[in-house]
Amino acid sequence: MDKKPSNIRTIIAYIVLILLTFLCLFFFYILIINCTRSHQQIQSGFSFLPGKSFAQNFNNVIHDAKLPVLSGIKNSLIVSSCSAILATYFSALTAYGLYAYNFKLKKPAFIFIMLILVMPTQVSAMGFINIITKMGMINTLYPLILPSIAAPAVFYFMYSYMQSSLPLELIEAARIDGCNEFKTFNRIVIPIMKPALAVQAIFAFVQSWNNFFIPALVLQENSKRTLPILIAMLRSADFLKFDMGKVYMLITVAIVPIIIVYIALSRYIVAGVALGGVKE
C-alpha cells in the first residue's frame, strides 16, 4: 500500500545519484581519453573512444625541454612522502605527549592546538617567505617539508584515536617491562596507532601533493619545482601553441596516481573521513 511513494523517491534518488556520478566521472573520462589522443585528433573534435598516442604523449611530456616533468614528479614525491611521514609521526608524538603525561602546561597546550585547528597557513605566508629566506631555505624543498611537523588537525585525529584505543595501562605495562619512554612510543604506541597513521599519511600525502600556494612562492628554480607549479607554468605559457595531448598528459600524470591509490584504498579513506577518531 505504502510502497508507491517510497518507490518514486527511490527512483528520484537513483536519478540524482547517477547524474552526480556522471558529473564526477565524466571530466576524468575525457581526460583519460584525450591523453591517449594526438594533438590533431583532439583539435579535430571530441570522441568517446581512446586514441593510440598515449606513449607518444607521455614521451613528449617527460622530454619537454621547458617543463622539467620528471624532476617535478621526483620533487613532488619527495615533498609529499616526507611531509606525510613527518606529519603523522610528530602528530602522533605530540598527541601521545599530551595524552599520556601529566604536566603543568598540558591543558594550555591542548587548548592552543585546538584553537589553531583550522587556522589557514596563508595568513602568515608573508612572514614565512621572509623567515625562510633569512634561513637560506628559499628555493629548497625543506620549507615545504619541515612545517608538517606542526599539523594540528592530524594531531587532533591522533589524539581522538588514542582516547579510543590506547589504554594508559598498556603504557605502564611497557614501563614495568623495561621500555624507556621513547621505546614505549616507538615499539608499543606506533604499532597500535598503525590504522590511524595510515589514513592520516594518505591525507597528508595528498594534501602536500596538491599544494600550490606556498610551493609557488618558495620554489623559483625550474629543477626544484613540483607538479602543481608546472601546471601553472603550462597555463601561463601560450596556450594555443601547445600540444594538447601533452597538456592532458601532464594533468593525467598529476592526478591519476592519486586516483589509483584512492581506488585501491577507498574503503579505508572513506571510513577515515566518516569516522574520524572513532575506532571500528
Binding site: P167, E169, L170, E172, A173, A174, R175, I176, D177, I192
Partner: peptide, 17 residues
C-alpha cells in the same frame, strides 16, 4: 625506575600488547 625495581605487575585490563 619501574624496570629496575624487580617487580612485575598484572593490570585490571590485562594491558596485553
Amino acid at each position: 625506575p619501574p624496570k629496575s625495581r624487580n617487580i612485575a605487575m598484572v593490570f585490571q585490563s590485562y594491558a596485553l600488547y
